[in-house]
């Protein structure tokens, strides 16, 4: 071959900013955050200083209440370990619990596509009732809309919820402090991989079940034994996105230890195969807590005694203030950054 001269060859043109919503805006990662910051917060977020926590905290006559809302559009409607109904109840219960509130009442709005069978709807509603009972909340109000065939994908559910925050409880993504210990309540990524494996076109099967569960009783048990600064349920965007959000809200540096991260082998295997980072995979029955260092062991013990916290583990700590960053000590002894999920999670090519 003759000598090859690369000079003069350069790189592609810039991608123009999206002019329309793309699926990645709903992934819970940086695209979602950009949408919030550029469009929603400037227009709608003025009165909500804590709009970036899982629930807003509203004060009425000196009493603090947590208020939140969440829409559920999962496909398939039924997946191993859960369904859209259980998800809709647990999602809102958990958002309330993540600011330390005791969830009391929920509302639910149904968007039904013409042609949805009563059998499916009945099963979903029964599952909602069972989840509400387990969490100790009731459905206080509801609404139903029907759209024509093709106007929605079978069934969408919105739930809102309210709960009281006890005096002395002050939990927010902005409250992480240097020295805090970081705990997760169990194995990471179960929900996302269970749902993925249930999609008919994926071609792999697993015995894995979604972790979808109400976490309010777990939070109560934690609050009873120690000082909690931050709680978050790492749903869309996964644990990595939650940690990065907390590091930004609190302006702290967080270091996690790869070796201590709890994963089910099936989740690790699926992620290795598809090229996913399990830290980006959604959870629906897990929380991450930043707690006062001196209380960490007590809180961990209390968590392990609860139904949904048996596999809780300490995964890291807050190592500095003044620089928002999440670092990981890798299992082989290296160090790297942990970032948010940029957009949709995409399987790799080869």
């Amino acid at each position: 071959m003759n000598e090859f001269d690369f000079e003069g060859y350069t790189c592609p043109v810039p991608l123009r900013p999206n002019e329309a919503v793309i699926l990645g805006h709903g992934s819970g990662g940086t695209l979602s955050r950009d949408l919030l910051r550029r469009l929603f917060l400037p227009e709608l977020g003025q009165a909500a200083p804590r709009a970036l926590d899982d629930s807003a905290v509203v004060e009425i006559d000196g009493q603090r209440f947590a208020l939140t809302t969440d829409s559920h559009v999962v496909s398939p409607l039924f997946f191993p370990g859960g369904d859209i109904g259980r998800l809709a109840i647990c999602g809102t219960v958990n958002d309330l619990a993540m600011v330390g509130a005791k969830p009391t009442a929920l509302t639910c709005g149904f968007v039904l596509e013409e042609g949805l069978s009563f059998d499916v709807l009945q099963r979903v509603v029964a599952s909602m009732q069972a989840a509400a009972e387990e969490a100790g909340v009731y459905i206080a109000a509801g609404d139903t809309k029907v759209v024509q065939k093709g106007g929605a994908d079978r069934l969408f559910i919105n739930t809102s919820g309210i709960g009281r925050i006890a005096d002395g409880v002050n939990i927010s993504g902005a409250n992480a402090q240097e020295g805090d210990v970081v705990i997760v309540s169990g194995t990471i990524g179960d929900h996302g991989i269970a749902v993925l494996s249930a999609r008919e076109d994926l071609g792999f099967e697993t015995m894995l079940e979604s972790d979808v569960a109400p976490l309010n009783h777990l939070v109560e048990a934690m609050l009873a034994v120690g000082e909690i600064h931050v709680l978050r349920d790492p749903t869309r965007g996964g644990l990595a996105t939650s940690l990065v959000e907390i590091s930004e809200q609190s302006n702290v540096t967080i270091e996690i230890e790869e070796e201590t991260l709890p994963f089910k082998p099936a989740v690790r295997a699926a992620c290795e195969m598809l090229g996913f980072d399990p830290l980006f995979v959604a959870n629906e029955g897990k929380l991450v807590a930043f707690v006062k260092a001196g209380d960490a062991e007590k809180i961990l013990d209390a968590m392990k005694k609860t139904k949904y916290g048996e596999e809780s583990a300490i995964i890291g700590r807050v190592i500095g203030f003044g620089k928002s960053q999440v670092r990981m000590r890798t299992a082989i002894g290296g160090t790297r950054l942990v970032d948010m999920l940029p957009g949709e999670m995409l399987p790799r090519i080869c």
Binding site: F6, Y9, T10, C11, P12, V13, P14
Partner: peptide
């Protein structure tokens, strides 16, 4: 291609 980035040099 537009000469806005140095991917060529990075790829080599």
């Amino acid at each position: 291609e537009s000469p806005l980035c140095m991917a060529g040099e990075i790829l080599q």
